[in-house]
Amino acid sequence: MTSTPPEMTRLRGRAWLFGPDISTDMLSPGQYVHDPPEIRLRHVLEPARPEFASQVRPGDILVAGANFGCGSSRESAPQHLKDLGVALVVADSLARIFARNAIALGLPALSCPGVSATVHDHEVVEVDIVAGEVVVGEGRAHLRADRIPEQMLDVLSHGGIEPLLVALAARAR
C-alpha cells in the first residue's frame, strides 16, 4: 500500500513465544471486563504465561501457534496487547475475528505457517508487514507470511478504524 509510511512496514522486536489455541479468554478474561485498565492488563495471557504482562516491553513481538485469538469477538483482546506495547502478532494462523479486530485497532497481525516452530522465545524477529517477510534471529531463518489484504493495509495505514471514522466525519461536514 503506497499510503503506508515506510517506517511502519518493517518492525523489529523481541519475540514472546506462545503455543496453539491462545483464546480471547486468556487474552482478556470475561470476569475483569468492567475492571479498570490497569487490573485488566495485569491478567493478559495469565493462564498461558503468568510473567508476560509484567515483563513485556514496548516493541516486543508476539509469536504463537495455530488459531491464535480464537473465541469471542471482544476487541479488548488485541487492545490489551496494544496497550502493553506489543508491536505485532505473528502466528501459524489467526482466528478470523481476532485478525480483523487487531487490524481495526491498528495492530498488525499476520498468519505465517511454521513461525511458532521456528522462533525461539526472546529471539529477535524482523517482519515486513506489507511484503509478508519474516526474518528470524538475525537471518537464522526466513519465512513467508500471508500478505495482509489491501483493505486491511488501508485501515492499518490510517492507524485503525477510529481515525478512519474521524476522517469520514470530517468529510461529511
Partner: peptide
C-alpha cells in the same frame, strides 16, 4: 451471520457496509 469487533461495528453503523 458473523461476529465482529467494536471498531468494525462502528464503521458498519456509520457507512452501512463492511468488507
Amino acid at each position: 451471520g458473523c461476529g465482529i469487533g467494536s471498531s468494525e461495528m462502528a464503521y458498519a453503523l456509520a457507512t452501512g457496509e463492511l468488507w
